[in-house]
Design a protein around this nucleic acid. Sequence first.
DNA 1: TTGTACGCGTTATCAC
DNA 2: GTGATAACGCGTACAA
Lengths: 333, 333
Amino acid sequence: MATIREIAEKAGVSSGTVSFILNGKGDKMRISEATQKRVLEVARELGYLPSISARRLRNNDDNKIPVITILWTLDARASLISRFLQGIQTKSLYKDGLFELLIQPYENDKLNEVESLHTGTRFNGAIIANASSEDLEYLERVDLKVPIVLYQRYSEKFNTVNVDSFLTGIEVAQFLARKGHEQVGIVVPDISSQAVDLRQQGFLKGVEECGMVNTHIQKGDFTEEGGYKVIQSLVKGSDELPAALFFLSDPMAMGALAACHDNGIRVPDDLEIIGHDNDEQTAYTVPALTTVHLPVEEMAVACINQLMNLINHKIQTPEALQYKTKLVRRTSC
Amino acid sequence: MATIREIAEKAGVSSGTVSFILNGKGDKMRISEATQKRVLEVARELGYLPSISARRLRNNDDNKIPVITILWTLDARASLISRFLQGIQTKSLYKDGLFELLIQPYENDKLNEVESLHTGTRFNGAIIANASSEDLEYLERVDLKVPIVLYQRYSEKFNTVNVDSFLTGIEVAQFLARKGHEQVGIVVPDISSQAVDLRQQGFLKGVEECGMVNTHIQKGDFTEEGGYKVIQSLVKGSDELPAALFFLSDPMAMGALAACHDNGIRVPDDLEIIGHDNDEQTAYTVPALTTVHLPVEEMAVACINQLMNLINHKIQTPEALQYKTKLVRRTSC
DNA sequence: TTGTACGCGTTATCAC
DNA sequence: GTGATAACGCGTACAA
């Protein structure tokens, strides 16, 4: 809270002297031991916290390259950020030194508490990931001072990098229909998400169009445990199991695989399971998980490029980039 | 690159006018359409990038609460950050609003390229995670302008939050000995890491002390794929399999589980597998993975607390906090 | 629309 | 030997 000048006054020296001492240049500047000690003491008393922006402004290491921030939710989905970063890394986008990258965690549904979106005092541009419906509505409503790219969400107001989630749902349904299934189900993580909603709608539409029956819509926590519990409750219930279950998140599908194993349900013989995202681990589950590949890495690169173009005034009106998902067939389905 | 004043000059207006226009207050300030257009045009030409530190300094939203940065490597271990964040989140440390948290990715072995450690122009304090031996050596050598806490590393120069990795190695060996095994092996990720080295040394020491024989020291990539390949090469080799294999990383152990399944090696009957870290997924592998619990969540909280105390001048001399690992018995071993 | 004081740490110049 | 003074970086906002 205290500034260098307040310390100076209280210690009876000049602000320059304080600066030297606080930066360990006291000896070099031949400032007496006594003064140094006194100043350090006062700084401690006053709880001195250096102003990093003043330093930065003075040092001129600002304003050369833009600071890009990824706003990522601080919940179970935090683990998904690693693929996003890998995408940025492998394209050597990062090494070119054209921007500085930071990740800022925020609480789901509380994007409105990220004030720097209005003040513009933290970054030159932001990629917003996993925005909940509430967060999205907030974004539509307010005026932001900083260019933004939305990842995996759609909006007419902003630049977006997305995938056709509705189509994905349809395609998964069609895939299951081609395999000859009649009764299928879907498991949905209990988070508010445009992408999840669309996948579900697409799937249900596809199921109907293909003449199948959707017997289960289960909700659960967006974790392995959530998926595990879904299977447990299905087993305990009296209902017949569907032929296949589409999990809208890989971690949930992995939990389900474990639950099937524990309950003696053979996958894919007794129940087929299909996940979504194609997380790194899914190729190494037992049995290997069939899942929908989400091109996270490419989308990450696209987000950065879009944002850089926005920051560099190369884009005027919002663009919506669309990527394609792809079914990865392994053994669980 | 261009400042507001340069734009003003080129557009033939004052800097205040430019500021108003660039912030969308042109209409409110009743600045003519023509001028607004001209200024916007010049700003685009000059590639104007607002100085966020100047804004921040002016807005006085600096200097209230400290900015804490987590320096995390931008490699396969990026996924491990989620547990670290969960620890901070659940303790509501984050919600108290006593600090601002950022994650800054850096390249393994290139901590020296993170200049803000010297300039102090980005954050008030940093938690450094996963420092490689090279990075650690660098830290020992240079003078930093910012308080630091090392996570999972030990150094006399800095505050550290750690675990006794050597002891962990010994304890795992003793555990295997108690199970009556004679021939065991260890699988090590090929990254330079103090913690990994110590675990390995401890394990080998323990193996010897317990009268067992270490038959394999395998290296591999720090990923599921790396673990998978280790098993593959063991299978192809002519050597007999050891009774148990200690993987120094859970993802590798999970890959190994998959490889065993694919090669008809029954776990734990033919080969026992034990991992390290107790990642979220390990409870849901098939079979469930026995592993060493690393108290990441508690350590994360400790890191933040230590760093805050450092920033608030409450700690003078380096402290080394020590946490305990714990074996989590499941079915793979 | 303009002029300008301000926020705060840094450092080169100057003084005793 | 010890330390003071003041210009500077750049966007903001208020008085004029």
